[in-house]
Design a protein around this nucleic acid. Sequence first.
DNA 1: ACCGGCGGGACGACCCGTTTAT
DNA 2: ATAAACGGGTCGTCCCGCCGGT
Lengths: 193, 193, 193, 193
Amino acid sequence: VPSDSRDRMVRAAVDLFRERGYAATSLGDVLARSGAPRGSIYHHFPGGKAELAAEALRRYSAASVRFLTRAVEGGSAADVVRAFVGYAADGLARSGFQQGCPVAGVALDLTQEDGALAAVVTEAFAAWRAVLRAALERDGATPAQARRLAALVVASVEGALLLARAERSTAPLDDVKVELVSHVRAALATTGR
Amino acid sequence: VPSDSRDRMVRAAVDLFRERGYAATSLGDVLARSGAPRGSIYHHFPGGKAELAAEALRRYSAASVRFLTRAVEGGSAADVVRAFVGYAADGLARSGFQQGCPVAGVALDLTQEDGALAAVVTEAFAAWRAVLRAALERDGATPAQARRLAALVVASVEGALLLARAERSTAPLDDVKVELVSHVRAALATTGR
Amino acid sequence: VPSDSRDRMVRAAVDLFRERGYAATSLGDVLARSGAPRGSIYHHFPGGKAELAAEALRRYSAASVRFLTRAVEGGSAADVVRAFVGYAADGLARSGFQQGCPVAGVALDLTQEDGALAAVVTEAFAAWRAVLRAALERDGATPAQARRLAALVVASVEGALLLARAERSTAPLDDVKVELVSHVRAALATTGR
Amino acid sequence: VPSDSRDRMVRAAVDLFRERGYAATSLGDVLARSGAPRGSIYHHFPGGKAELAAEALRRYSAASVRFLTRAVEGGSAADVVRAFVGYAADGLARSGFQQGCPVAGVALDLTQEDGALAAVVTEAFAAWRAVLRAALERDGATPAQARRLAALVVASVEGALLLARAERSTAPLDDVKVELVSHVRAALATTGR
DNA sequence: ACCGGCGGGACGACCCGTTTAT
DNA sequence: ATAAACGGGTCGTCCCGCCGGT
């Protein structure tokens, strides 16, 4: 059975990485926010901070992929794009423009040595792209086009989250959403013809 | 006359923020890479690390804006987009997939207290968007459309840089470039008609 | 029935104290080397690390005293000295010059508060000296002389083990053995005359 | 100019290693006893605890070698032995039977990785032996005999210090002194004949 | 003005010896 | 008889003053 402390620590880590990134988040911060006892971190995460971060990213990735997958099942590719942008915008707005994307927050702080964590980051990005690619192909995109569009969507959302958090406004996300939906629609219409 | 040490420190800071972000970069790292004397930090940057970072971002922003402006003067909006993506891709590839965007590297690590630095970050993003917006309007976009497209371009490039650095490949940047150019072209064509 | 885990832990502790002393040996090291389960420490050794160490020293002391006693029964005092030095040299050489004397390894790391462990250390030294004293008296030494020679022998061996481990060679032990045997022989000859 | 803090830290380290060895001495202990500020340690000893220990051992070694050398200049080999044992006994007795030999205290706690420190330990032992060997040869010993006798003397003193500290009495040192002097005298007399 | 030595306190992550709850 | 959990403490080092030189 997963311990309660452990779970709270992972959740706190996700939130903190969304707010200040990996390097600026101390284990003390995680402990303070989660209310977990100091000694527990090494027990639950023998690999230390990096292992905690890996788990946090995996959890965030899994949740967002589940969300995306549901959107894919219930709507068109354009709907999925809208859902993806909305997912990011929601998290940001709900937290008073504090919480961006934890994957980005970790990715930017990594140096070459953190191989294991870097792999988790890459995997998280890949998972999003895979879901988007599948939806785009399902709706008529060629494989190459789907790959490019998926990259554009993920990149735009990550970047827009950056802009939006910086200026404390969802405007960049809203703008990106409009253009993304229009572009995807046009691309699929052209291809499908 | 601007001191040599000061200059080297700023350049080292830019590079390090591109590689590992703000929080993961210590002043010791900056000193080591720049070869600057230890006692000089507070002489040149009484505000400490934050002031050094502000200067580093301003310098990077100014250089990239100069580059973008030249592209605007010499080509279409689509050319500017290509140049912008290329600028990011070049820096990344030239550094062996180490150096992303220093503005992003700082932005993600900031907490609410770093007001001054946050302002510099916002300003840097705004500067890029302003140049792009102007070029788009010049080429026929409506103000609102130009604003949205500029947001999309800046966001896509920042995000693609993230993806590209993570997977040590320029593929995401290349993919984003193709889609961005195609979308901007289509948008301007529609509007201008 | 003596538990298997318990036994393995004691043996691992002996070896580790011989290699790195008391303070540098963590319970985790003991667990890792013995393969014993983590939770068992407090079951078997309610007194914690100190109690484990006490038991380890007692076991080592008992084994070496048995060895010495057999040498006493089978030979002259000079033979006993040879056996004593050889016992130390064997353990050291067999372990690739890793394992010295666990009693020394514990003794040096103790502070004034560790009364119980200090007593075990003293007792271990006393036991060796007692056996040597008895053999020397049996072979003709006066009580005072036997006491002094026993101190010299134990001290020399402990010290030579230190030197030998440090320079990864049995030379100091060999040198000490030669001189010790010669001195003991001369002393007994003079007395007995 | 050597800083005052630095000097006090080294002296505190020597004393603490004499009392509890290397592993049981924390940098916090050194700081507390020396009154030095925490931030200074890394400035003075970039190599951390190991570098501080190396310096402490070198200082103790140098001081004791100076002492031994003076004894060599002013007396016979037997006098040197007496001085050597007395040096150890004095330090121990003066400190209320707390302070043994710092070289031993470090040597026992080292693992295979601490190569640099181990070299300093070996060097310290070698220095004592060299001085003793020279004095013995000067007084008529053959080279091989001098080597063996020097090993015996150093080993005996180190070991006797161990015993003496453990039982809080100088008796082992006194006993060893008597036997050592008698043995060295006899050895030199025999050789010189 | 610029720079080096040094000091200074606060945390950083890691991990240790121990106890509570099975 | 064992795993989960717990605080306290380790070393490293970070960011930052304060002087004395030059």
